[in-house]
């Protein structure tokens, strides 16, 4: 795209959206948000970056193949479900631990790992489709 303003703003916009998407992912358990919506926001950010600077730049920026990201997400989600088997509770039962870092209690759970998996699958799958469409669109 030719617009200089858009090209200049796009990286900042994408970084902000990605950051925001992670924020939405993490707050999801108690307030509106979650892995799915967070993933969609991140994909929108990537799409903006792609429109501004071309697909190659985006592929370079995310380093991994989008489908590899999606695969990792699916794997993480499955692992999150399997962990509960080790605690002798049914598959996919949420497990929580509360380690404290520097006096601050930090709730961690398999549920969060699962939601992160959802996030990665959404980011990976949809950006893979969007990027490949964009790539050939110009021909």
């Amino acid at each position: 795209m030719k617009s200089v303003i858009f090209r200049t703003v796009a990286p900042f916009l994408t970084s902000l959206m990605t950051l925001f998407s992670i924020f939405v992912l993490l707050r999801g358990h108690n307030e509106p948000g979650g892995g799915f919506i967070g993933g969609l926001i991140a994909v929108s950010g990537l799409a903006i970056y792609g429109i501004a600077h071309g697909v190659e730049t985006v592929r370079h920026a995310i380093y991994f193949h989008p489908l590899a990201i999606a695969g990792a997400g699916l794997f993480a989600a499955t692992v999150a479900g399997l962990i509960s088997l080790y605690a002798h509770v049914p598959f996919m039962t949420g497990l929580w631990i509360y380690p404290s870092f520097f006096g601050v209690e930090m709730p961690l759970s398999t549920v969060m790992l699962f939601d992160t998996g959802v996030y990665l699958v959404v980011v990976g799958s949809i950006s893979s489709v969007a990027l490949s469409l964009e790539e050939r669109g110009g021909e």
């Binding site: 999801g28 358990h29 108690n30 307030e31 509106p32 948000g33 979650g34 892995g35 799915f36 989600a77 499955t78 479900g81 598959f91 996919m92 949420g94 929580w96 709730p107 759970s109 549920v111 699962f114 939601d115 959802v118």
Partner: peptide, 19 residues
């Protein structure tokens, strides 16, 4: 342990569906 019911349903109560 979640206040957002929608999200809790997606990732916990019906997690297997989501998977």
């Amino acid at each position: 342990h979640g206040a957002n019911v929608v999200n809790v349903i997606i990732v916990d109560f019906r997690g297997t569906d989501t998977l």
